[in-house]
Design a protein around this nucleic acid. Structure first.
Length: 255
DNA sequence: AATCCAAGCAACCGCTCTGTT
DNA sequence: AAACAGAGCGGTTGCTTGGAT
């Protein structure tokens, strides 16, 4: 479609990053912020594509990255979120502070997939591998902090598979027929009527690690917050606590 | 000790989405 | 409304490393 390339490939390095490149990138971002990725390489004196710089920063150089092994709790949370969201790695990563989408995606493909298979669970459908073919049941997942009036609006989308379409205007209620009745089986403690908000910037993230909440299920509370609020889904119909105001005030800046 | 193979991870590629003109 | 540019996402690739033979 005649799109101009994101960079001039002939004069860009590829492959593994050198320490010097890392240092240049870190120094530049510390001094100027993340800004415009397209122009960053030139400004920083890097012979790299802007996309490459962005990826390197986000996946490896960012100071708030946790790195290291995933804990058992993180494993379980990833599984539950994946059963709800599918391969929406960035959304899943948004609920795991210090983890990147790429990291989670790799971890899923290398560890969790196998783990689920060994449990006799299909990692794609979260359904028992030998399980029967139950008819799809309707599941509601909502994205974004839905305003009451919006919730009333009929802007629900009905789809067929478990992969809800991307959020629209960050406020969209998705109603889809899940082919995954097994979600309830795999996670009987999860309230499937969830509203998932898009991941926001680090400052506006929900409180870290909603692990206890995930473990305790939809009804569980951590620090007085219900699971919906901990997932960054204030004002949802699933909210069972009274922290909506606190929450929305701190996480209103959307991306 | 050398070779082979599989697993893990970093990085790339192509596509889609979103904002701007 | 259409075209364009930039950013972000998900799938895939390929290199590195560690264990097995």
């Amino acid at each position: 479609m005649g799109r101009s390339p994101c960079c001039e490939k002939a004069h860009t390095n590829k492959g593994a990053w050198t320490k010097e490149e890392d240092e240049r990138l870190i120094a530049y971002i510390k001094a100027h912020g993340e800004g415009c990725w397209r122009s960053l390489p030139k400004a920083a004196g890097l012979l790299r594509c802007g996309k490459s710089c962005r990826l390197r920063w986000i996946n490896y150089l960012r100071p708030d990255l946790k790195r290291g092994n995933f804990t058992h709790d993180e494993d379980e949370l990833i599984i539950k979120l994946h059963s709800l969201l599918g391969n929406k790695w960035s959304l899943i990563a948004g609920r795991l502070p210090g983890r990147t989408d790429n990291e989670i995606k790799n971890y899923w493909n290398t560890h969790i997939r196998r783990k689920l298979l060994s449990r006799g669970i299909d990692p794609t459908t979260h359904r028992p591998i030998n399980g029967g073919a139950e008819p799809p049941k309707e599941t509601t997942i909502s994205f974004g902090a839905v305003k009451p009036e919006d919730a009333e609006n009929n802007n629900s989308i009905t789809g067929k598979d478990s992969e809800p379409k991307k959020e629209e205007n960050k406020e969209e209620t998705l109603l889809f027929k899940s082919e995954e009745p097994q979600v309830a089986e795999a996670c009987p403690d999860l309230n499937l009527e969830l509203r998932i908000s898009p991941p926001s910037s680090q400052e506006t993230r929900p409180p870290p690690l909603p692990l206890e909440a995930a473990k305790s299920g939809g009804g569980g509370r951590v620090n007085g917050l219900c699971f919906a609020c901990i997932l960054g889904i204030p004002n949802s119909i699933d909210c069972t606590c009274n922290n909506n105001e606190d929450y929305s005030s701190g996480s209103s800046s959307s991306n």
